[in-house]
Amino acid sequence: MNNISTVEVAKEKLDQWLCNGTVAPGAKLPSERELGDLLGVKRMTLRQALLNLESESKIFRKDRRGWFVAQPRFNYNPKSSASFKLAAIEQNRVPSWGFIEKSTVADYPAIVEPLFGEEPHHPLYRITGWGALDNHKVFYHETFINPAVAPGFIDKLGDLSFSQLWENEYKKKLNIQKLAFRPTRISGDACKVIGGSAGTPIILVEKHRADNNKNIVQIDIEYWRFESVDFFINL
């Protein structure tokens, strides 16, 4: 049997375990050494079979923790006014989230320059956080806000949602003016927070939020685990 067919046989056996529910969604697979022994294949063959299943979003890796069975994919409409919490509950998922850092930064990516409009550049508010489904972190976000438009935003945020604070404190109801999606690879803070291995493929979502005068006042950069989500937009 050649190497390609051996990889396919190992993949089919693993896939059958997943389909039969031998390992539940979200559960950890046995170690690669144990899997190799169970399947009677060499480590390189097993690794290729695992990578093939990862590319099909059936399993995923957590850095230094091993392989896990993918959970059901989250249906996410990034233009919807429904919050992540409400959307998750509607899909019978258990959502959780948290902020990591709220700070003022003078060093920021060029992607957020639309926040300035015609103003000179100056420090911005940067808020980082994460979202999870069924105790599994599925995205990391960076949010940038112009302090000139929303003075004291990071001090007033607390545990409120962004939309709550904008409406209650600044009397602004925001609309999404621009959405951009692109595949990339995980690194840096996102890698640490959502537990991926360096270089793991992820989906970057860039959102520009504007007030009723179409002034961009908030830019979100979200990094989603690619096996965790299906994006859709109702037209």
Rank of each mutant, 00 (worst) to 15 (best):
T128E: 01
L14W: 03
V7N: 07
L14F: 06
R61L: 04
S31Q: 02
I4S: 14
P120M: 09
S103M: 08
A110F: 01
F60G: 05
I219H: 09
K214D: 14
L53P: 03
H136S: 15
P72Q: 09
K192R: 15
L133N: 03
L46K: 02
C19A: 13
T6Q: 14
D189H: 13
P78T: 06
T143W: 00
N20K: 13
D230Y: 09
M1P: 03
E54S: 11
A106M: 05
I4Q: 15
D220F: 12
E32L: 00
F74G: 00
S5C: 12
V9I: 09
W130H: 10
D220H: 13
P120T: 02
D155R: 05
N168Y: 10
N77F: 07
Y140G: 02
N92G: 01
F60Y: 14
S96M: 04
N20R: 12
I100A: 04
I194Q: 06
F84P: 11
N2C: 07
P30E: 11
P95V: 04
E227S: 02
I202W: 03
L157D: 03
D107I: 12
H136Q: 11
P72H: 05
S228A: 15
I4F: 14
G66S: 11
P95A: 08
G98A: 02
I221S: 10
K137P: 12
G117A: 01
D155Q: 15
E222H: 13
E227A: 04
W130Q: 08
S103E: 11
L50C: 04
L124M: 11
W67E: 01
K42W: 01
D134H: 13
W224M: 07
F60M: 05
D155E: 15
F116A: 07
I194E: 01
A24C: 06
T128F: 04
I233N: 10
K172M: 14
F181S: 03
Y140F: 15
I111G: 01
D220N: 10
L124Q: 09
F231H: 03
V229F: 01
I221G: 08
A82N: 10
S81P: 00
N2D: 14
I186R: 00
P183C: 07
P25N: 05
E32V: 08
D134N: 15
S187H: 03
R64N: 08
S96T: 11
N213Q: 06
D230Q: 07
N175M: 09
K173A: 09
Q177W: 07
S103P: 03
P78L: 05
A198V: 03
T22Y: 15
I219G: 09
L51T: 02
L29C: 04
E54L: 10
I203F: 11
L50H: 00
S80E: 07
I216W: 04
L51H: 12
V193H: 00
F68A: 04
G36V: 01
K214W: 11
K42F: 00
F231W: 04
F139I: 01
N212R: 15
G196T: 12
L39E: 01
V23H: 15
E222C: 10
R61F: 07
I154L: 08
L204C: 14
R93A: 12
H208G: 12
S57W: 06
M1H: 11
D15P: 02
R43W: 07
N77W: 02
Q218L: 10
A49W: 06
P78A: 06
A70R: 01
M44P: 10
A190T: 05
A132V: 02
Q91H: 05
Y108P: 00
T6M: 13
W166L: 10
S163D: 13
P120R: 02
I127R: 05
